[in-house]
Design a protein around this nucleic acid. Structure first.
Lengths: 237, 237
DNA sequence: GTGTGAGGTCTTGTATGCAAGATCTACAAC
DNA sequence: GTTGTAGATCTTGCATACAAGACCTCACAC
C-alpha cells in the first residue's frame, strides 16, 4: 500500500485551528478532484500528510460527512462519496428550487452596489467564455451566483444552496461546456442581472431555474457517456 | 457553579457508539427544551453526565453545530443556538418551499400503502385534536409529514427538510395551538391526503405551503407576545 | 470612582496510548 | 480449484494527558 504523497504539499498555515484547516484542505482536495470518489480516507494517513494528529482529522472528516462530501461506516472509516445519475437529477431539481427562490428574494432586496458587481461579473464572464482559462470561468460563475445568494439575505437559504452545490461535479462542470453552452450560460447571467435590475421577482426566478436546469443537462450528458474524469495525477516534488 | 444534574438520567445504552449516542441525547435535550437557548454546553460537564469522555462529546457537538442546533466560537465552546423572529420568517418560507416541493413530488410517487397510512394518521389526529395529549399530537403530526417526505423519494430533499424543522420551536409548536388552529391543521392534513390520492401535484403543493405558513403564523404570534417558555424544570431523582 | 494590568482559573484544542472491531492472508480440508 | 477458518495486521473508537487560549478577579494607579 503506497501512501499518496503530495496532495497537501506546501499547504498554507492551516487556518485558525488545525481541525477547520484540515476540513478546508480535504474539502478542496475532494472538490478539486485530487482524491477520487470511493477512495478511502484513512485518518492516520491524512494526519501525517497534514502534519497534525488524528484528532483534528477525525473532526474534519465528521464535518465533511455531515456536509455530504464523504461517507462513513462504523469502524470502517470514511470514503469520498460517490454520486450517481439519479441522485444528480434530484440535486439539480433541488438546486433549481432553492436558487430560484434566492433569485426571487434578491429581486426585491438587492442594492445598487451588488447590481453593479453583477454587471461587472457579466463583462468578465463574456471575455472568459471564448478563452481557455477554465479555472477563472468557474470562479467567475461562482462569484455571480454567490452575489445573488448574498443579496437574497437569508442565511438559512444560503447555507442550503451552498450545501447543494458543494460537489466535485458541480464545481468543475464548466470543463465540459461547449462554446455554445458557455455562451448560453453567459446569456443567462445577463438576463438574470437585467431581471434583478428591473426588480422582477418572477422573471428572476424563472431565469435562474432554467439556468440551473441547463447546467444539470450538461452534466447529465457527460455523466451518461463517459465516467467521471478521475484525476489521479500527482504533483511531483 | 452548580452542575445541571438529571437531564440525562437513566438514558438508554447510548446507541451503536458513544459519539452518535451522545449526539442523539443532546439533540433530544435541545429539541425537548431541557436545555434553553443560549445556554452554554461545556464538554466536560456533558461528558460526566453521559458517563463518557470528552472526545465523543466533542464529536457530537460538532455534528449538532453543522445541523444548526448549537453555535460555537473558537476556544469558547458551544452554546444552544438562539432563534430570532426575523430568522423564523426565513425558516418558514424555506420550509414552505421545500415541503411544498416534497408534496408535489409525493403526489406522483406515493403508493397505496403510504396513502393508507396517511388516512389512518388523519383519523388519529382527529381524535387527538380535542384532547390534551400534546406529545402524541406532536408525534402524529411529525409522522404525517415524515410519511409524505419519504414518499417524495429524494434523500437530499428529505435531509434538507429535516434540517429546517429540527428546531425546538417547531418541534413543540402544537403546544400553542388553539382548538380552532388545531382543527384547521387537521383539515389541512385531510385536504393534503385527498390531493395526494387524486395525484394532484399542484394542489398538494399549494395546500402544503399554506399549511406550513399557518404553522409559522401560530409561532410568530407567540414569539411576538411572550418569550419562549424556557423549561428549566429538573427531574428530581 | 474608573480604568488598566497581572495572575489565576477555567475551558477548549491537540496529541498520544490502548482496546475493540474489521480486513487481509495463509493454510488446511474437501 | 474452491471454501472455510485461524491468526496477524491494520484501522477506528474512546480515554487521558498536556498545552494554549479566554475569562475572571483583584489589586493598583490615576
Amino acid at each position: 500500500m503506497v501512501a499518496i504523497v503530495g496532495i497537501f504539499d506546501g499547504h498554507p498555515p492551516l487556518g485558525r485551528n488545525a481541525s477547520t484547516g484540515a476540513a478546508d484542505l480535504i474539502r478542496q482536495a475532494i472538490l478539486g478532484g485530487q482524491v477520487s470518489p470511493g477512495q478511502r480516507l484513512k485518518e492516520e494517513e491524512l494526519a501525517q500528510q497534514l502534519g497534525i494528529s488524528r484528532t483534528p482529522v477525525r473532526e474534519a472528516l465528521l464535518v465533511l460527512q455531515t456536509e455530504g462530501l464523504v461517507e462513513a461506516s462504523p469502524n470502517r472509516g470514511a470514503t469520498v462519496r460517490r454520486y450517481e445519475l439519479p441522485d444528480l437529477a434530484d440535486m439539480y431539481e433541488l438546486r433549481a428550487l432553492l436558487e430560484g427562490n434566492a433569485a426571487r428574494r434578491a429581486a426585491t432586496r438587492i442594492d445598487a452596489d451588488s447590481l453593479q458587481r453583477l454587471h461587472e461579473s457579466c463583462a468578465r464572464f463574456q471575455t472568459l467564455v471564448g478563452g481557455s482559462d477554465l479555472n477563472r470561468l468557474v470562479a467567475e460563475n461562482a462569484f455571480f451566483h454567490e452575489t445573488i445568494l448574498v443579496a437574497a439575505d437569508s442565511e438559512r437559504l444560503a447555507g442550503m444552496v451552498r450545501q447543494v452545490i458543494a460537489l466535485p461535479l458541480v464545481y468543475k462542470s464548466y470543463i465540459w461546456y461547449s462554446p455554445e453552452q458557455a455562451t448560453a450560460s453567459y446569456h443567462g447571467h445577463r438576463q438574470l442581472t437585467n431581471a434583478l435590475e428591473r426588480r422582477d421577482p418572477s422573471r428572476a426566478e424563472s431565469i435562474m431555474r432554467e439556468h440551473v436546469y441547463e447546467a444539470g443537462d450538461v452534466l447529465a450528458q457527460h455523466m451518461g457517456s463517459a465516467e467521471l474524469p478521475t484525476e489521479t495525477k500527482e504533483a511531483a516534488a
